[in-house]
């Protein structure tokens, strides 16, 4: 099952995209599960974490349990890589963070050579009471635009827990991408969800649905969605927040920049309150770069294109 050369190759392919992967290379001792296409190439565990993988016909079931009270300084690393040009990869992560645990989970999805490659994920994350759980997912799909990627995640955040989601899709060419994350927040929990996506050309079609359901009293959430579409790329952001319990507070913030002919951005914020004590808000802006920002940079000598590129690069 162990195949450190392959996992190293996949990880190093991430390095092409200016990422610091030093903490995730095979020699790093932290907990990890690394796949090469539909085979498990590396699993390593640490005390307090159970990590198991089961290979299935077109993918892998990954079970992760963070035991009660476990506090990890190193992130748990999941690397779902495919060096092949074509194929189907299906991943089923089942993650449980027991009460009073604190962990960061870093997922890298790398498909550097994709021409007709499909990656699907169907994940469940169960977070207990008084936990801190940070989930970072970063994708790299090469430059050919041949990837079709469809991750779906359901997250259940227990009482008085903090869940942070950082989903970044900004490097290389994306291809077709459809992301869905539904987060159920229970009593006194806090949700901080950040999505960044960059459609760079007409091959890129990105759809993101980021939903928070505030099911427990005093639960709070913020969804921040930032996107840019240039060169004919297309991005749609669907930000949902529902306040379904007393004193819940939520906000959806969506900023999308459009540049070049044929590029398209859409934002659909959907907010709902079913209790008079809820306070749910949204804010969205789409279109060209803010003129105050443009003028500020042009007054320092940048032309409009340079200023726009700098603003997009830093926003994402």
């Amino acid at each position: 099952m162990s195949d450190k050369i392959d996992s190293g190759e996949i990880l190093k392919s991430l390095g092409k995209y200016d990422l610091d992967i030093s903490n995730f290379l095979p020699e790093h001792k932290g907990p990890k599960l690394v796949l090469n296409f539909n085979k498990i190439s590396t699993i390593s565990q640490v005390e307090g974490v159970i990590l198991k993988g089961h290979e299935i016909e077109n993918g892998v079931i990954a079970d992760i349990i963070i035991k009660e009270g476990t506090v990890l300084e190193d992130p748990i690393h999941l690397c779902f890589g495919v060096n092949k040009e074509t194929g189907l990869q299906e991943i089923f992560p089942r993650i449980i963070a027991e009460d009073n645990s604190s962990v960061t989970l870093q997922a890298h999805c790398s498909f550097p050579n994709a021409k007709n490659l499909i990656h699907k994920m169907f994940g469940h994350i169960y977070i207990g009471k008084n936990c801190k759980f940070v989930y970072n997912e970063t994708h790299f799909h090469g430059y050919t635009g041949g990837a079709t990627v469809a991750p779906v995640s359901y997250v259940y955040v227990g009482e008085n827990s903090y869940f942070e989601n950082n989903f970044f899709l900004t490097q290389g060419t994306i291809g077709r991408m459809k992301i869905q994350i539904d987060i159920y927040a229970f009593k006194d929990s806090i949700i901080n969800s950040n999505v960044k996506a960059f459609g760079k050309n007409s091959l890129d079609s990105i759809r993101v649905r980021d939903a928070v359901f505030l099911e427990g009293e005093n639960a709070r959430s913020i969804i921040k969605m930032k996107a840019a579409a240039i060169g004919g790329g297309e991005v749609m952001m669907f930000g949902i927040t529902e306040g379904n319990a007393a004193n819940t507070t939520g906000h959806v913030d969506c900023t999308e920049i459009v540049k070049d002919r044929g590029s398209r951005c859409r934002a659909i914020p959907l907010i709902r309150a079913t209790d008079e004590s809820c306070h749910i808000t949204h804010e969205a802006s789409l279109g060209k770069v803010d003129s105050a920002q443009l003028n500020a940079l042009m007054a320092r000598g940048l032309d409009e294109d340079e200023a726009t590129d700098l603003i997009i690069k830093n926003m994402l």
């Binding site: 930032k226 105050a292 920002q293 500020a296 603003i311 690069k313 830093n314 926003m315």
Partner: peptide, 8 residues
């Protein structure tokens, strides 16, 4: 009123 920039 100077502009503010995310990430810059």
């Amino acid at each position: 009123t100077p502009a503010r920039f995310d990430g810059l």
